[in-house]
Simulated assay, not measured.
Amino acid sequence: MDPEDRPPATDDAVESTNGACDTDTDTDTIDDTDTDTDTIDDTEDPEAFVGDPDGGDRDGPVADVNPDRSEDGLLKRFRRDNEGPLMWLREMLSSVAIVLLLGLILFGVSGVWPPMVAVESGSMEPNMEVGDLVFVTEPGRFAPDAADNDIGVVTYENGQAADYRTFGTYGSVVIYQPPGRTASPIIHRAMFHVDEGENWYERADRRLHNADDCEELRNCPAPHDGFITLGDNNGQYDQANGLSEPVKADWVTGVARLRVPYLGYVRLIATGQAKPSDLISVSTGVEPRELGTESTSPLIDRSESTPGTMIGTERTGFSLRFDSSTVAVHG
């Protein structure tokens, strides 16, 4: 058929053609939209959201999934709470830390552990009382010029010559533990030093033993080198009444330096060696126990008191609000 004989295109055909073109155009537009969507997906960073990192619901509230944040909150409560279990735990730990710190400081100064001992008997009265807490140093530390030995102990004899006094009278007060003794260590005054085999009867104060000669006096002649010791409130030497042989230097575990009234009752009450009523009684000036007859020991001068000593039921000195590790000692 010749082209001239062909029928003219109808409007329907034109519209169909235009529709096809429109469809293609729309398709391109949809493809562009898809491309834009893909672009948005590519720019998303899951780690930029605090929430579900696997692509969960990111439009909801942000969850507190950071464990450090929870720990910070607990730590802040522990530091700032003024009531409740965290407050009690904080106060308890603080108290323990303070006591340990003070104990370490005292240990650094004294060189012995424990650096304090609690007096449990009255054999050193009135210069040391039951319930006193006594600060001690290792033998040889802070040795005075009057000491003539390696452990820094000044005997009563040498103290008289040098006018060296501790705890109310001449000489050093030592803490010693004889071999085989299972009871508490002993805290008594060093009176004089003897050599092995020495007849020390003539050097002894006859008021402090009941012997007529060396043969009747216990530990005479001296079985070895050592100190003759005495409780200030006792009527006999420790070596005369059989409490101990002459005290060797290596039996001495410490030298008494300072005492704190009453504070030793903390340990004595905790170990059952004293009752709370005992502390109440002595603090109010009423002794809870009978002291017996007044001591005739020549070491005790009841006519005057010295700072830090006790006369009768009156106690002088100072008190502290803390305690450290202690052991009880037999006065």
Rank of each mutant, 00 (worst) to 15 (best):
L230D: 05
P246L: 04
T229A: 09
A222W: 00
V247Y: 04
L243S: 15
W251C: 01
A256R: 03
R207K: 13
E245S: 13
P223W: 04
L217R: 08
A256S: 09
A211V: 02
D212R: 14
H224G: 07
L208K: 04
C220T: 03
P221V: 09
P246R: 05
C214S: 07
N241A: 13
E216W: 10
R207N: 09
K248H: 12
D225A: 10
F227H: 04
T229I: 05
G254R: 01
E216S: 10
L243R: 15
Q236I: 09
A249C: 14
S244I: 01
L243Y: 15
F227K: 00
N210V: 15
T229E: 04
A240M: 05
C220V: 05
V247T: 09
C214Y: 03
R207E: 11
L208H: 05
R207Q: 11
N241L: 12
R257Q: 12
K248C: 12
E216P: 06
F227C: 05
G254M: 02
V252G: 02
D250M: 07
G242D: 11
D213N: 14
P246D: 01
G235Y: 14
A240I: 01
S244Y: 03
P223A: 04
A256I: 03
N241W: 12
A256M: 10
R207P: 05
A249D: 15
Q236V: 07
Y237W: 09
C220L: 03
L217C: 08
K248E: 14
N233A: 12
K248Q: 14
G231K: 08
D213K: 11
D213V: 12
L230G: 03
D225R: 05
A249P: 14
C214N: 06
G242Q: 15
E245Q: 10
A211T: 03
D238G: 09
D225W: 02
P223S: 06
Y237Q: 01
D238R: 00
P223Q: 07
T229K: 03
W251H: 08
E245G: 08
T253L: 06
L217E: 06
C220A: 10
N234L: 15
G242I: 13
W251R: 03
A211Q: 06
I228V: 09
D232C: 04
D225M: 06
E245L: 12
H224V: 05
D250Q: 11
G242Y: 12
L217A: 13
V252L: 05
T229P: 04
N219E: 12
N233V: 06
D225Y: 07
E215P: 15
S244F: 04
W251P: 00
